[in-house]
């Protein structure tokens, strides 16, 4: 099944492109919050595509790959939220040029 091998390889390659873009985003973004946007989440699709590609290359691994994908989807947002929340609570400022900070505004009003 050469055709499937090629498709699997291409999907995995597409996944690595998104991972690379995530890394570039981490380097380019101006502050922690925007870096998290690029770094932790441009990688969501990168991970999913890489796993899908592996599943196409190795169909017998599919059930476990599906589980890994679910675990990524469940743990990724929780850890991202925990990091962002802790950062904001610790007073890490938004980058210059940020439009607004509704949370800071509400916290001061309290």
């Amino acid at each position: 099944m050469v055709a499937w091998d090629v498709i699997g390889a291409l999907v995995t390659l597409a996944g690595s492109v998104f991972l690379l873009l995530g890394a570039i985003g981490v380097a380019r973004m101006p502050d922690l919050y925007n870096r998290m946007q690029a770094g932790t989440k441009a990688t969501t699709l990168g991970n999913l595509l890489t796993l899908t590609g592996l599943g196409i290359l190795m169909p017998s691994w599919l059930p476990k790959i599906l589980l890994i994908a679910v675990f990524v989807l469940v743990t990724n947002p929780i850890s991202s939220h925990a990091l962002a929340r802790a950062a904001h609570a610790a007073g890490i400022p938004l980058a210059k040029g940020s439009v607004k900070d509704a949370l800071d505004h509400d916290r001061e009003a309290r």
């Binding site: 919050y33 946007q37 690029a38 989440k41 947002p77 939220h81 962002a84 929340r85 904001h88």
Partner: peptide, 15 residues
């Protein structure tokens, strides 16, 4: 809901 918002890049639940 908050996890879905965080999962979609561009939006991140802070609090």
């Amino acid at each position: 809901l908050t996890s879905s918002i965080t999962l979609t890049p561009g939006t991140l639940t802070v609090e």
